[in-house]
């Protein structure tokens, strides 16, 4: 799983039948401190996430392992909305100052 922040929505009308009725969200990958990384995903929403949410994305074939995404051509799914990331190791937590999420 990777950390991500929902930054937008993607709307598509002509798409694979298996994608119908699924919300597509534009998500920027971030690290555990909330610092943006250099990649993004268009992910299917399985947990009613919204813009601005800090979420967990499952990718690759694992993304098909929810009831919603079973057997659908989906390679990224939002599977949790994060409340908090607690880092116990002080050396690892938010080195770059405050979190941006």
């Amino acid at each position: 799983m990777i950390f991500a922040k929902v930054i937008g929505t993607v709307v598509s009308t002509s798409k694979d039948p298996n994608l119908e009725g699924k919300k597509l969200l534009l998500c920027k990958e971030v690290d555990h401190t909330g610092k943006p990384l250099n990649s993004y995903h268009v992910a299917v929403d399985a947990v009613q996430a919204g813009e601005g949410n800090f979420v967990l994305i499952s990718y690759g074939s694992s993304a098909r392992m929810t009831e919603l995404t079973k057997n659908a051509p989906i390679d990224a799914v939002i599977m949790a909305i994060i409340d908090e990331v607690q880092i116990t190791d002080p050396a690892k937590s938010a080195k770059k100052g405050t979190s941006e999420v």
Partner: peptide
């Protein structure tokens, strides 16, 4: 090194 707290997650 840390715990991720999430109340809303997929049922699995």
């Amino acid at each position: 090194i840390g715990v991720v707290w999430a109340t809303k997650k997929v049922p699995q």
